[in-house]
Design a binder for these strands. Sequence first.
DNA 1: ACTTGGTATCGAAACGTTTTGATACTACAC
DNA 2: GTGTAGTATCAAAACGTTTCGATACCAAGT
Lengths: 345, 345
Amino acid sequence: MKHRPTIRDVARKAGLSLSTVSLVINNRGYVSPETRESVLKVVRELSYHPTRSARGLASKTSGNIGFILSEEHFSQAEPFYTRIFLGTEFEARIHNFYILLTTVGDQFDPDQYVPRFLLERNVDGIIIAGKVSEKLISYIDSLGLPIVLVDYEMKRALHSAVLIDNWRGGTLAVEHLLALGHRRIAFLGGDIRHPSLSERYAAYKNTLNQAGVHLDETFEITEEKATSVAGGTSAAERLFASGANPTAIFAVNDAMAIGCVRHLKSRGMRIPHDVAIVGFDDIDMSAHIEPRLTTVRVFKEEMGKIAVQRVVDSITAKTNIVVTTHVPVELIVRESTVSAAHADD
Amino acid sequence: MKHRPTIRDVARKAGLSLSTVSLVINNRGYVSPETRESVLKVVRELSYHPTRSARGLASKTSGNIGFILSEEHFSQAEPFYTRIFLGTEFEARIHNFYILLTTVGDQFDPDQYVPRFLLERNVDGIIIAGKVSEKLISYIDSLGLPIVLVDYEMKRALHSAVLIDNWRGGTLAVEHLLALGHRRIAFLGGDIRHPSLSERYAAYKNTLNQAGVHLDETFEITEEKATSVAGGTSAAERLFASGANPTAIFAVNDAMAIGCVRHLKSRGMRIPHDVAIVGFDDIDMSAHIEPRLTTVRVFKEEMGKIAVQRVVDSITAKTNIVVTTHVPVELIVRESTVSAAHADD
DNA sequence: ACTTGGTATCGAAACGTTTTGATACTACAC
DNA sequence: GTGTAGTATCAAAACGTTTCGATACCAAGT
């Protein structure tokens, strides 16, 4: 447990001042090439590395990025946000940052609970995934920390955001069903207050309208409490209980689509023969269920990556330019809309 | 952006010294109840919170735990280790630690690359998931940091470890197949150098032996390069290409089992009618494929949780007692061994 | 000759805590 | 009344960096 070298040791051995060594290490200010080289040489010889805490104290930076996720999304270990999170981990390492994860409840009260990394001044910027209290966002603003929103958007765009192209995704999904000849297309949705979900819903209605297809309200389930597998099952139940007889279903996300599939199978309905289904998100599971699910692929890791790039930009550049990125989506056609073995028919 | 209060402000307002305030905050040393109360009152009034960097510098602690994962496991976003990681995140928050994630390559050379959080003295303890270079482990030891291994074990148990009860899991799986009347039971395995996998293999052989079932070498695939879905497909191909005709297969993990299922289905074989399959791990996907996979459930989040508890113990207690925990497993019987609709037969 | 501005280096202060050692009081046993 | 052990508080040092301002040199522009 030998004493590890400090910047002081480096300075002494190089015959220079602390300040000069610091300048070299941080690649800042004026240093002659020869001096720089000799410092670096000593650094190598001693295998010196600056300590994060000391650096943090002096420079008021932490080298960390905070990732905030709503409690429900985290505890369910939601495959969707989990992927985004892993994407940030990946990209963060490239930029020499670490990600600190925390969760927050639905409503935020600064007198009650504040993420610890904010109190301890232990992050340089914040990534928020999904929907959280607006109070929380303005609280963080008041700390002067840069924020990047992922899969969430506020009325007035004051923050950089990384968004899914939900409109295009919804349109692609419904157009796909229309192209297959479907006209009685149902929508299975949940909490429409979440911007992503309401956009998908809007795209659904718009696409049908454009195609001149009559909109039937009994075909729309928009108030299911949870957009989960269980929610999908219960929404499907309600849909058919209402007497609707769609030939195709657009589910607001894959979790609901999978729940829906399960319900249809339990009723003995064949997919896609009796009812075709399209989901949204392309979570891992979707390619593995039977039938494999047609869906709109969202590049989740990519979203995390972009979010980190944005927040790092804001941290380093100090300039607060707001960038909204719409990450493109892709329709993945699988067996839940187009039968693999056409022999079925 | 008003100046946030420091411990100095608290001391001044409370009419006490820095040291006393520090003692109160850290709940240490002798402080009279009245003094403690008056300090806490001021802390509340100013809503003071100590800064992580300053605290870290003075106390040589970071409040972080390092999580090390091999590169391949991370980049594949392996659902197995990902779950363990999420388990640590969950538990870490309870103990007021943050998790810093990093990955390492297969071979470790301290002159080449060392995880940044080690160089920067930015972690108080380390959790290592899966198999990594032993050189890395001894390097970390030389830094005096406590280590907890998860799903990995070294010959001489010098570190606390959180392990799967692979022996019992493998035994349960094979006994299940025997109880169903199977005698020609194949094993699909990969890199047997990983302790977890070799234990499962050993349990397989032992259980068959105990049951007096002849071991047929052509029934054993133990050298598949990757224990992934693709590896499972290719292992299954090789198994049947060799002319083996098992009625049941025990795959070393769910990923391989799923790959195997895929291959069997492409050959037109019915599961479990023609061949029954058991996996290991119970990853999310397993309950959703067709047929739903019988498997040995591993409590992945739980393993992460325990790992954090162990490492926090070592960090706070300073005592280096080695604890090896075998997390129990559970056989989950699903359709890949027992037909749901018995009408099939 | 006198500014000006860029280059190079340094000393000292600052960052906000924890920790160490000293001091002083009280209570109790002898 | 002296010694001992526990209780309570404090002043100062230490932790390892970055940053600020000062100094000094040199070359070029007037």
